[in-house]
Nucleic acid binder design. Sequence first.
DNA 1: TATGAATGAGTCTTCATTCAT
DNA 2: GATGAATGAAGACTCATTCAT
Lengths: 217, 217, 217, 217
Amino acid sequence: MQILKEEVRANILKAALLEFKQVGYSNASIRRIAMAAGVTSGNIYRYYKNKEQLFDAIVLPVHNQYIDSLEEIRRKVQLSYARGATSAPDFFSRIERAFIELFKTYSSEFTILLNRSEGTKYEGVKPELEDLVSSLLERVLAKPVGDEVSPSAENRAVAGMLASTIVEGICVIFRDNEEGETLKFLIDQYLSVYSKGIAGLIHSDKENRSGCCENNH
Amino acid sequence: MQILKEEVRANILKAALLEFKQVGYSNASIRRIAMAAGVTSGNIYRYYKNKEQLFDAIVLPVHNQYIDSLEEIRRKVQLSYARGATSAPDFFSRIERAFIELFKTYSSEFTILLNRSEGTKYEGVKPELEDLVSSLLERVLAKPVGDEVSPSAENRAVAGMLASTIVEGICVIFRDNEEGETLKFLIDQYLSVYSKGIAGLIHSDKENRSGCCENNH
Amino acid sequence: MQILKEEVRANILKAALLEFKQVGYSNASIRRIAMAAGVTSGNIYRYYKNKEQLFDAIVLPVHNQYIDSLEEIRRKVQLSYARGATSAPDFFSRIERAFIELFKTYSSEFTILLNRSEGTKYEGVKPELEDLVSSLLERVLAKPVGDEVSPSAENRAVAGMLASTIVEGICVIFRDNEEGETLKFLIDQYLSVYSKGIAGLIHSDKENRSGCCENNH
Amino acid sequence: MQILKEEVRANILKAALLEFKQVGYSNASIRRIAMAAGVTSGNIYRYYKNKEQLFDAIVLPVHNQYIDSLEEIRRKVQLSYARGATSAPDFFSRIERAFIELFKTYSSEFTILLNRSEGTKYEGVKPELEDLVSSLLERVLAKPVGDEVSPSAENRAVAGMLASTIVEGICVIFRDNEEGETLKFLIDQYLSVYSKGIAGLIHSDKENRSGCCENNH
DNA sequence: TATGAATGAGTCTTCATTCAT
DNA sequence: GATGAATGAAGACTCATTCAT
């Protein structure tokens, strides 16, 4: 019996999603995808021009919405910054909302976009996100007085580190959880930890550096 | 003049280290390693039986010491737990010390072990570490009273999430920085954030859940 | 409304003709033909068993008539030879007439038969034609006296060369021009050049070889 | 026993030459070449980066010298034209010399360049040559008086036709003969035919058109 | 009749590994 | 010890042909 076209397309997409999620773009095998989809490898090319476009089919929608979200965050932060209000929780909640939204619609696809796109045109996506978060954090870490001094090298390093780890952490949480209440709760807790932790950092920073951990290496 | 055997072996290792760090195990090319090492590809096989064992040669030492460290941490935690003292900062500083030690000796190798071992038998290393950290955190998150109740599902989820993100964050920091003072400082700041953040979490948890972030999705 | 069978067949033939003419038999793509014909590729196989028979459908009619023409030329030349009259212009005009006739009816098909049939059973068509022309030319080049000596090796080589180039030239002219007055005019001019050139050749041959070109290699 | 590298390279080239000559670039099969060369297909890629560069290895040398020859012809003709001397035999002998030279060094390669390069960057080579010859012939066919009138459409058509057929004819002669005395002789005869034929054409053209052939279509 | 999805052998190409030298 | 040519299986992709609908 011949399977209907759209069912086959769905099978291919499902198999490809799994394969890309498991081994990433460059290690993904068209043959394996075909077998998992119950299809011959040649037939995949009736549905997608090549490996790249098969990847696109999975990742492009998220990427588009993701680009939009980033732009929106940038705009809103610019606004609140103009109004003088730039608190850490503000930033985090904004980012959180955008990401939760994205993840609600495309959980696996988003994970693939962020973590499995090595060797594709999307490999720069995560670094860009980190850069955005980093530049936001530089403001947060700067002295609360509205001075115009450029951030210290130290602050820049910390901001970069925090940005990378926050983003990576979000990716990890997304990777490990299906969309649902638990996910939202975890993201919430996660950002709460960072929010409080960074607040503490700023505070202790005013007195002396590394004031909390007693470890003397 | 003929290059001494050990010098060649060192060249191969150095080149392999770089290659594995840059593209990971499965995308690494023996030819590229050979060329970078100033050696013929065939000759690599006189030093290492195959790609896998070349990877082993790089990663096995760290892995061994890493296993030991984990065991040690487990033991110490068990002890301090028996003595009734189990605070978050304690855990973190222990883990930190162990990792910093590992990283001081094998910075690149450790990064490879944790982040670039896909397709090898070491794939499971990071998950195991997360499991350990997670089980530690479960205790920390449990009510301070010495009750024996098994942790709630919620606590377990949060512990797992925090474990994964902490570990991933450490990997990221290691990945992005060379060994040195800055690295130690960043790890310190990082764990400080988590330490304070988690403390805050426990505190706010006593009153009502998710009490810090005002975002109502 | 459903397209009538013969209309579909005609569309396929038209598209196939174009494709074969442009890229030759072996590089022709059934899919491309189908698309150009506004037909599905599968449906082509209801009209023609396979690529080869589709090619046949285009080329067989010309080939048949072409075989007939050759036979006729052979016969007539035999006759006129028996009567003792064998002049170059005679031959050429005979061949010309036959070809013009063929080309008038099947311009593209003839071009395909001669120039684009590589990889099919018609590959040998052009060589055969050259052989015929060559054997005719051997007589023309032979001394006008009616002696029976077999042609010299030199004459045979020249006859072969002239045959190949004449035939090839005719193919080229056919390939580059649509049927019409210009085509006829060009073929006329072309054969006129050969006619006069060969006449000159025979003449100068009586005195000394290669009497016209001053190039001393 | 292991064959020496250069011997293998030579075998590959020899097999590739044959394959390209027989079926052309796009129909050539690397596997077939490999088998004919007594080599595995993978091994060919140790010698040539890909099919295209294997083709280049065969054809580039001829192509370079060919380009030079064309340029030289263009220059010399320009000179003789400036001096007012532009006879048909002149042109032909120049072209002949250049081609014979090329063919003496690269017989098969030259044939491949001219006749079997469909699908490569060299496919324009023959048309260019025809264009050059055509533009030369337009001058020859123009009235002998030094008038400046642009050639008639008719002359242009005839020049184009003659150029294509001459070039094609030369290709055919090269294709069918090994380098040697016979080849030179045949080219000589061939160009002699054209030389005389074109002279006759110009002459008869002064009186009335198509004055030699009695064929009334 | 017509469709177009499916097949599978074919294409070029890469690469870890082996082995004659 | 070292070389680097050779191998062969696997990679992505194409295309004439078949067949369920």
